[in-house]
Amino acid sequence: MFADFLQFLISGITVGAIYGLVGLGFSVIYNASNVINFAQGEFVMIGGMASVSFLSMGIPMPLAIVLAVVVTTFVGFALEIFAIEPARHNSVVSLIIITIGASIFLRGLAQIIWDRNYHNLPAFSGDDPIKLWGAALQPQSLWVMGGAGIIVLLLWLFFNHSILGKAILATSFNPLAAELVGIDTRRILQISFALSAALGAIAGILVAPIALTYTNVGVMLGLKGFCAAIVGGLGNPMGAIAGGLAVGIAEAFTAGYISSAYKDAVAFVIIILVLLFLPSGLFGRKEIDKV
């Protein structure tokens, strides 16, 4: 009994941490621009696929991972410059639609560059599970949890203790005032897309050894990450992580105790409930429209 419970909890926290990282990516871009970037899942896919690719070229794993993150970051940067920037003066809704188009484009491009097959990235430190009161803990789960923890800490330091991080926050709070103190708000948007692409790539690489990677992997992970961001309150980084964990754990328990057929439905049921009863999420800022 307890072993089962623990097993479900462990897998819930593991996938939850991934959803949280993807959700963080949504929050970073949302904060800088009010845009929900539906190409976020594609960053996850590119991160995983690119590492598999680099690895198969004989590049050692750590370097392959770094290269994959760099490539994805560059894709995020390019997405902002070529797709968002030219339409900057359009409504937020148009920009969101552009990101949907961009995600379809990136997925198609990935199918041309790579293929439609499933790929496996080897676990970072072996596949021998650690026994824990009757439950099995994959070493890769520890990498996922540890990785997510470190990223959250680094992001916290970045936004609270670096002038660039504070400038990004300032731009989200008051774009006009940000411009008047000399912050180049266009550059801030580019940085946000790059940062959020890097976050997505890291999530994709961490999860690839557990869940396989393929060119459509970003669709579901992107939606789950979006769920995490909504549940935690869009724009709240810590909320995204909490939301991710909540969605991941709920999913794992549903799959374990009810049926794995309902697994994917859980996230969306949660979204509907949150939007009905807590429209600004668990930790969201109350929306006040300025007139």
């Binding site: 002038i163 504070k166 709070f173 006009l176 005032a177 103190v181 912050i183």
Partner: peptide
């Protein structure tokens, strides 16, 4: 148009961006 969600000192710091 101060950055109301940020501290006084951060506002000054950003003034020196």
């Amino acid at each position: 148009q101060v950055f109301s969600e940020m501290t006084v000192e951060d506002n000054l710091l950003l003034g020196a961006f």
